[in-house]
Design a protein around this nucleic acid. Structure first.
Lengths: 250, 250
DNA sequence: CGTTACGTTGATAGGAATCAATGAGGGTGG
DNA sequence: CCACCCTCATTGATTCCTATCAACGTAACG
């Protein structure tokens, strides 16, 4: 009788479908092998499982292979703030680099599998493979840009615009992964969307209903269909909170 | 007659007073010299001068030596969002790493001097000096943490709490620089504080007045005196927006 | 000494939070 | 298999914080 031992299956970065989206992007074959040698494929997480918690010592960064991971920080009072939802090909754990202690908590929203990369080994390989080092900088830069965008969304847009922006962000990332950009399932609850966007879940629900009434999206539980991509973009861009900055040139 | 040519004065990282706060933190003497060899001290910027603009090609990261720099991103519509105010010892320009194009604009709020570090050279030195490479990762990690904190502040606190948090953040950083933690000058206008914290300048003004009436701070134009640090901390922590997350254990 | 930019303060309005009730699935156990 | 529970989601009514509109005060500057 044959039993498949999944722990023995060699899944390398080289033959991973996320190859071009994930850390290996742009690496030569021999460089890739060096990276590969330190990557550990982990047991899948199930919905609700916690990968690391704020306060844990930092050892690994992780690449999401499948599923969806949410990252949260919290105030001293335990108020949680969701920093992001991470899809396949995206990197988490960077929050631990500064102080060697994680400042975020990572929780699976779906069954998710990840690749763990011990950071100490990573930095060693980075010194040998400059292009990987540069890619790491880029990944961290992307994280910073992502948060800049989130700040912009939260401070400058009304509820509807925030939701529209959020849906379009997901849409674009699904497209990049080869999934439909118009039909997808939200792995997160309304409450989690609200937390992420600085809204209550009631407001999220109301705004989504409103978008549906306007015919821009269809909602079926967690399933969203984007019916009018252009108008959705329009709402993102037009519904800015009025600026107090406008000054006439002297 | 003797004329001092400032461009000839050799200011090295080694004898810089920011030594322990800035990039050189934790470097050995010989490592420090390698870093030093690629650092360019720039002409001082004056209030309102722009160091780089969103869209500029990315060549340098910069360490702030004196003064104060504000970083902004903007939407396609030109709505601006201030990402942060940078004090001596802090690093800016990281927003260009991801795409080799700056996504932020950097403007001096005061007369400011900076050290420019060509990023290409930096990555080269990083591969030779692992501890510098790690420090770069830490600096970027700090940037991410900073934005996480800002998000928390904006989404979870009311106006007064945001202002209190902001003032305490400045206070702590001034202290670290060896300045007074209770008396300092705000380099930025009320409008800029508001932009940064997701408030209008009127609300900033009102909240600050309220803090003054409560005896927690004194305001004299741009000069702030913190009169009751503890209560200020208390306001940061207590005035959270009520959570919808609280769940009773099963 | 007017001009201008910045700051304060008041009155009002509006959008989202809050409070509240109801509905829809998903799982469990009788 | 269905009643029950529990979580999540929707929708309505009301409240509250902050944006907005507006007037006035203050400091810097040519």
């Amino acid at each position: 009788m044959y039993v498949i031992d999944f722990t023995k299956i060699k899944v390398s970065c080289e033959n991973c479908s996320l190859h071009e989206l994930c850390l290996p992007r742009g690496l030569e074959k021999n460089e890739l092998e060096k990276l590969d040698s330190i990557v550990n494929r982990t047991q899948p997480l199930h919905k609700g499982d916690v990968l690391f918690r704020s306060g844990d010592t930092f050892t690994n960064i992780y690449a999401v292979r499948t599923g969806c991971i949410k990252l949260t920080t919290s105030t001293e009072q335990g108020e949680e703030q969701i920093i992001g939802f991470y899809l396949p090909g995206e990197i988490i754990g960077l929050d631990g680099i500064e102080k060697d202690i994680h400042s975020c908590t990572a929780e699976a929203l779906d069954t998710s599998s990840l690749c763990a990369i011990p950071f100490d080994n990573m930095t060693t390989v980075c010194t040998q493979v400059p292009s990987l080092n540069h890619e790491m900088f880029r990944v961290m830069g992307r994280e910073i840009s992502h948060e800049n965008q989130l700040l912009l969304t939260i401070t400058k847009k009304h509820a509807e615009g925030r939701i529209a922006t959020f849906l379009l962000s997901l849409s674009g990332r699904f497209k990049q992964l080869g999934y439909s950009e118009t039909e997808f399932r939200l792995a997160m609850s309304r409450s989690e969307v609200g937390n992420y966007l600085g809204l209550t879940f009631e407001t999220v629900s109301r705004s989504m209903s409103k978008l549906q009434k306007q015919g821009l999206i269809s909602i079926n539980q967690k399933y969203i269909t984007i019916e009018d991509m252009d108008s959705l973009h329009h709402i993102c861009n037009e519904k800015d909170l009025p600026s107090k900055e406008s000054k006439t040139a002297p």
